[in-house]
Design a protein around this nucleic acid. Structure first.
Lengths: 334, 334
DNA sequence: ATGAAAGCGCTAACAC
DNA sequence: GTGTTAGCGCTTTCAT
């Protein structure tokens, strides 16, 4: 692999001059710069980022650590970080923890070991282990999607309460009287917030609280399915808010198996818009989260934080939007 | 950030000794090693991979470059490379090209610049630009999913001809007489191979070739949808093989919109098994590709290639398997 | 068994 | 405007 010295020799200049050309330093004679560029091309030279990082102490690389890369919400977030990062010359590395604490720790360690410029992290782990030192995180970190109040860090969140509230209100206005809610694990903030939004909407509609209409599941399809089965057994609801995309699939399957027509017998709204929500049968009304914007905002917070390590942590709250489709179409009056 | 020198000073030894402990060099006194480990813990020291890579000329990192990270086939491949790579101490970096030649070039360049140990690449680009030098690829490379005969490289492929052939035969045996095929772009090898498998099965069943039953689309849902619409207009088929997961969604939507019942009016088989295929309405019969195994095999080929740069390129062909579900259930005889 | 020292490939003072 | 040089944090001979 050719080095900067070989390029320098080839062009008859010093390595410093090559470095200047490489880094767009204007203080280089035009002719000489051109000669250097020619040598670079002829030799097919590519500067070693490794050497560069060691020297400059910056890697121009950030890690995005997510619990589930198969969840389209997170893939969209990654698109956002790539988009926004590219502009700042930042490369995005995707790390998938599969909700495994040990893998998460491993990736945090990796970010440190690689001396990455930043970490964008979605987790419900309040204890980040050795990664959190007394002087803050070992690598500049921005949280996304889930809140971790215990950590004083920048964060980009979505207004889950509002999203769930609007969705529930929509179900009620569309004619549902017994609206159920399948939310995520009780220890995940997004799940409790969405449940809260549901409860607020119910209260405001003057519907009395009925615990048999609420289920916590695991944010995966199988969990959504059994939760839906339980709800049907506990007393048929005529509307349901399913608080994430994976569980929505499971719930729909269970309803289909039981011969429950959507929206005929039951109105349904899911969470997390995604590429194929419109393609389902029926097309599913969802609370769309601005996933891409989450990624973009996270990069911006990260860059600000790198520029000024000492300012007070910021919290960006983005708004979701209801995408109305067939699964919640108002019931015909009989 | 603490360095190896500070650890050495803290433990009262030389940096060389710390390095030896770090790398499990047995030639170090037990007591001393223990003292070093204590210092490492106390200081929270993490060796810089950057400095390590510069010194050893190995990054222990590979790039997996795929055309579409939202396609579950590729996410599964990535899982495979992570699984298998972890064992060898390799870290997987995921790069998403969105089928964009420029982005692909960019990521190949990145692999070079970061002096990565290897690249696992899914592409239909026959020209890899400067990445391919006269002495082979700039970084050790293994191709996956798609064939590139022009490049003499290791590759892990799936027997697409066989998969499509079995699927088509299954459709015919299940009672379809006019079996259509929606395949991918004519310049992508997986698409032509799947089409070929379809054609072979049709020929062997003694069904005469009918070009109006074949459509090329773009491997995305919208393309699958319009292809399905065209097929229905051109003369209703009673069976269809859709050659990738995204297009299957589109085709199903079109059929639903037209009021065509699956499998009642038309039998359907898709390609690429995926997490939610069983959750669709109806659950979809698919040709499941061993995506994870593709990733694992690719890592193995890569490691072999790194160990021996001069052996002849190998080609691993994996077998797909038909997952029979409701969408192709044999028609009741009227 | 341990240490001293060179060097991986680059950048940034500093000198000219 | 350009060159010389030190040094980023490691690993690895080569001495001892």
């Amino acid at each position: 692999m050719t080095t900067i010295y070989e390029v320098a020799a080839h062009a008859g200049v010093s390595p410093a001059t090559v470095s200047r050309v490489l880094n767009g330093n204007r203080a280089v004679n035009g002719v000489m710069a051109e000669r250097v560029r020619t040598s670079i091309d002829e030799l097919g030279y590519r500067p070693s980022q490794v050497a560069r990082s060691l020297r400059t102490q910056r890697s121009r690389t950030i890690a995005v650590i997510v619990p589930d890369i198969e969840n389209p919400f997170f893939t969209s977030v990654v698109r956002g970080t790539e988009d926004e990062g590219r502009g700042a010359g930042l490369m995005t590395v995707v790390c998938n923890t599969d909700n495994d604490v040990e893998r998460e720790r491993g990736y945090l360690r990796l970010a440190v070991d690689q001396r990455m410029d930043g970490v964008i992290l979605a987790t419900d782990q309040h204890d980040l282990g050795e990664f959190m030192t007394t002087r803050g995180p070992a690598v500049t970190t921005v949280l996304i999607d889930r809140e971790l109040d215990s950590l004083r860090l920048d964060a980009v969140l979505v207004d889950n309460v509002l999203g769930a509230k609007e969705a529930t209100r929509h179900l009620i206005e569309s004619g549902a009287h017994r609206v159920a809610c399948i939310t995520g694990p009780a220890n995940v903030t997004t799940a409790t917030q969405r449940l809260q939004g549901y409860q607020e909407a119910m209260r405001e509609a003057g519907i009395r609280r009925d615990r048999s209409l609420v289920r916590h599941a695991d944010y995966h399809s199988a969990g959504g399915r059994s939760a839906m089965a339980e709800l049907m057994a506990a007393g048929r609801p005529d509307g349901v808010l399913v608080c994430n995309n994976m569980m929505t699939m499971g719930a729909l399957q269970e309803l289909s198996d039981q011969g429950v027509a959507v929206p005929g017998d039951l109105l349904l709204v899911g969470f997390d818009d995604e590429p194929w929500a419109p393609y389902w049968q029926p097309p599913v009304t969802t609370v769309a989260q601005p996933a891409r914007e989450v990624g973009r905002s996270a990069i911006r917070l990260l860059l600000d934080r790198i520029a000024d390590a000492d300012s007070v942590p910021r919290r960006i709250l983005l708004l979701p939007s209801l995408q109305v489709r067939a699964s919640s179409h108002p019931r015909q009056r009989h």
